[in-house]
């Protein structure tokens, strides 16, 4: 059995008196260390799917297992620990805290860990920032960074706690082609060297093609691409 197992997962949003099915009966079995790309039209339910796997939205129906455990039977604190230590989330929109520097933004998820690592976290933060090409922006505030640079800080942050699974929602959305390719190389490297599982939503078909497993969302339905 895989690291992530979705069985017939559905999510309906209540919109006024109607209900809108953002995800319909999604099933998937994703093994540890897999690199999965997800493509699909705007509004097809990609973000909703990642949020479900990230323990941020309750499914209307179905089960989501992480390493064999049904994550929606967990307490709020257990879900927080899961988000903190097991997964790294790259959001579709800007998600840095404006009053923290790039490095402090990276250190924030460390502060939420239940057991504080003894030391070396500062060095790790700097190393990750260098890895995404921001070695000279370590102490810059988000407002002092370009949109693409902010995006890369958020990418680096997702790796801070050494997650088993990266949930990336259009992580390279506002990057130029060259930087985008660099980020993709970085992801593949982490995937190979650390065995980190990736689920990456992208509109870039070239990037999607580089993933071993390719999925497509269409009107809430998840299928092989």
């Amino acid at each position: 059995m895989g690291q992530i197992v979705l069985t017939n997962v559905s999510k309906e949003y209540a919109v006024g008196s109607e209900s809108l099915a953002a995800v319909r009966g999604a099933s998937a079995d994703i093994a540890k260390g897999e690199f999965v790309s997800i493509v699909g039209h705007s509004g097809s339910g990609k973000t909703t799917l990642l949020s479900l796997i990230g323990g941020m939205v309750n499914p209307t129906q179905g089960n989501i297992l992480f390493n064999g455990e049904n994550i929606y039977t967990w307490t709020s604190d257990q879900l927080s620990e899961y988000r903190c230590e097991k997964i790294g989330f790259m959001f579709q929109s800007a998600s840095l805290l404006p009053i923290l520097t790039a490095k402090e933004n990276l250190l924030l998820p460390v502060a939420f860990r239940s057991v504080q690592p003894s030391n070396g976290m500062d060095a790790r933060a700097e190393e990750l920032l260098r890895a995404v090409g921001l070695g000279d922006k370590i102490n810059a505030y988000p407002a002092q960074l370009s949109g693409g640079q902010q995006r890369r800080v958020a990418i680096a942050r997702a790796f801070m706690n050494g997650p088993e699974l990266i949930l990336a929602d259009e992580p390279t959305g506002d990057l130029d082609e060259e930087t985008e390719a660099e980020m993709m190389d970085f992801f593949l490297r982490m995937n190979e060297q650390q065995g980190t599982t990736f689920m990456m939503v992208t509109h870039n078909t070239d990037l999607a093609a580089r993933a071993k497993t390719r999925l497509r969302m269409h009107q809430g339905v998840l299928a092989k691409a």
């Binding site: 990230g54 941020m56 709020s76 604190d77 927080s80 620990e81 988000r83 903190c84 230590e85 989330f89 959001f91 998600s95 840095l96 805290l97 924030l108 998820p109 939420f112 860990r113 942050r157 706690n161």
Partner: peptide
């Protein structure tokens, strides 16, 4: 954001 990246209510 903080809750999404792992902050507990506490």
């Amino acid at each position: 954001i903080m809750r999404s990246i792992g902050a507990k209510e506490s």
